[in-house]
Structure formats: C-alpha cells, structure tokens
C-alpha cells in the first residue's frame, strides 16, 4: 500500500513537472523543474526501500546489522541533490529574468510565437 501510494505520488509529481517543463512561459519552466526535482529525489530515495523508525544512526560501538537500518546511501545522494537543485532553480530563474530583460518577453525562446 505504501509502495503504491509513493509510486503514484512520484508519477503525479513527474507528470506535472514534465508538463510544465514543456510550457512556453519561463516561470512555468522554473516551477516544472522544481516539481520534477521532487519526483526524482523521491524516486532515488525509494530505491533504498521504505522503512519506518530505522534512521541510519548507528550506536557508538560495534556496528549493528545493516538490514535493520534504512539505507543511508540514497539519502546521502539525495541530500546534496536537494541543495544543488535549489542552486539550479536560482540560476535558471536569474537566466530567465535576464533573458526577459534583454528580449522583453518571458517566452522561453525570447520571442513570442508567430501564432
């Protein structure tokens, strides 16, 4: 049940993110990347399996059975990914703002569609 819910959640986040990524307005693209990064972070995280009450904190002393703890590796990967995705969102936002300042439009191509 948990697995199903989380899988659906990842699917919804990824679909919303992809949809926004393909939109013409720069703000939509920023939001899309943000949603997509939630989806991807959760996806990587869930590759370590789902466990409750098992934070990867070991006692000071002889190491415990690793199978009793949540997988620390995806967590370490996702932690830096969260911070980096913030930096990328910020950079993209500023690029788009600067592009708007130069082109006078917030269309991703720097000019409105011919349509």
């Amino acid at each position: 049940m948990y697995e199903l819910v989380l899988a659906l959640a990842i699917g919804v986040l990824a679909a919303c993110g992809t949809w926004l990524l393909l939109r013409p307005r720069s703000f939509q693209v920023v939001m899309g990347l943000s949603l997509l990064s939630y989806a991807v972070n959760l996806f990587i995280f869930c590759m370590g399996g789902l466990r409750s009450h098992a934070a990867p904190i070991v006692p000071a002393g002889p190491p415990p059975d690793p199978s009793l703890l949540a997988d620390p590796l995806p967590q370490a990967l996702v932690l830096t990914a969260i911070v980096i995705s913030f930096a990328m969102t910020a950079l993209l936002l500023v690029v788009l703002l600067a592009a708007r300042g130069l082109a006078g439009t917030d269309h991703v191509d720097g000019r409105e569609d011919e349509r």
Binding site: E3, L4, L6, A7, L8, I10, G11, V12, L13, A14, A15, C16, T18, W19, L22, A39, L42, F43, C46, M47, G48, G49, L50, P66, D71, P72, L73
Partner: peptide, 25 residues
C-alpha cells in the same frame, strides 16, 4: 508528461516491491 509520470511510477513500484540488492551501504 503522462508517459514520464506513468513510467516513473511503474518503475518505482516495481523496484520498491522487490527485495533490496546487496549494495555498498
């Protein structure tokens, strides 16, 4: 978008309902 979402969900579900591989963790 639907293909990305559906695909990622299916992949995540299939991975989560399997026993974990032995990893460097």
């Amino acid at each position: 978008a639907a293909a990305v979402g559906g695909g990622l969900a299916a992949l995540a579900y299939a991975a989560m309902t399997r026993p974990l591989a032995d990893s460097i963790s």
